[in-house]
């Protein structure tokens, strides 16, 4: 058995070279990769721990904020309820005021319109009454009507106080006697005679035609009127109606 020392030495050198080469191309790179991955994992774990701490702090802050929000919500709700109640009361009061004003205005308007309607109806009633009276008069004989109204005039003069009759008799310029239509000469004489007898004097009579009288005779002076016509009667009726309604 012989040992080849050249071969021994060469193999030793070969292994030393292999150790050197593999250390550089294999062991160190792989160990460095492991170390780098370990560092990266540690960094990630550190980041995760920091993130967890941050998240826990954020959670605590959020919980605190949530509690604050809840109390703020309760406070705002109470405030809003109070405001709504106040607004409701104010709106109700304003609505009542406005309703009262509207009702007052409506009542005034209704009263005004009622008065207007009433006046219009009174006027229409007067016109209707005049129309009815005219139609009725048209069916009656003029002589009978004049006789009747002359009698009424004489009775009215007789009913006057004696002082008034004397004052009428002494009226300067004479008395106006109003009739609804022109009178014939005989009718004028008859009327003049009846009036002078009733006044127990002979005043001058001026015959005036006034169609508004409808029917009847009226005696007028500068300071006195003795009404004796349907116009005066209707006016009295209308006045009474207005007073009653």
């Amino acid at each position: 058995m012989t040992i080849d020392f050249w071969g021994l030495g060469l193999q030793a050198i070969n292994v030393v070279i292999l150790v050197w080469l593999l250390t550089r191309v294999f062991w160190r790179p792989v160990a460095a990769a492991i170390a780098k991955r370990h560092e990266a994992a540690q960094a990630i774990l550190g980041d995760a721990a920091a993130t967890k701490t941050k998240a826990e702090a954020a959670l605590a802050e959020l919980s605190e904020a949530r509690d604050g929000i809840a109390s703020e919500r309760t406070r705002v709700l109470a405030q809003a309820t109070a405001s709504a109640e106040a607004a409701k009361a104010a709106a109700l009061a304003e609505a009542k005021t406005q309703a009262a004003a509207l009702m007052t205005s409506a009542r005034a308007t209704i009263a005004h319109e009622t008065d207007a309607v009433r006046a219009k109806r009174v006027a229409q009633s007067g016109a209707l009454a005049v129309e009815i009276a005219q139609k009725l008069l048209g069916r009656l004989p003029d002589e009978a009507i004049q006789v009747r109204f002359l009698d009424l005039l004489v009775e009215a003069i007789a009913a006057l106080p004696a002082s008034d009759r004397a004052a009428l008799a002494k009226t300067k310029g004479g008395l106006d006697l109003l009739s609804p239509a022109d009178l014939s000469a005989s009718a004028k004489v008859k009327i003049t005679k009846a009036v002078q007898q009733a006044l127990e004097a002979v005043p001058e009579l001026n015959f005036v035609t006034d169609p508004d009288l409808i029917a009847g005779f009226e005696l007028r002076s500068a300071h006195f009127v003795l009404r004796n016509s349907w116009q005066a009667d209707l006016a009295a009726i209308l006045k009474e109606l207005q007073h009653v309604s």
């Binding site: 058995m1 040992i3 021994l8 030495g9 193999q11 030793a12």
Partner: peptide
């Protein structure tokens, strides 16, 4: 071979 193993032992 002897030389290789001997070289390893020497190393």
């Amino acid at each position: 071979k002897l030389e290789t193993d001997a070289a390893l032992a020497v190393l």
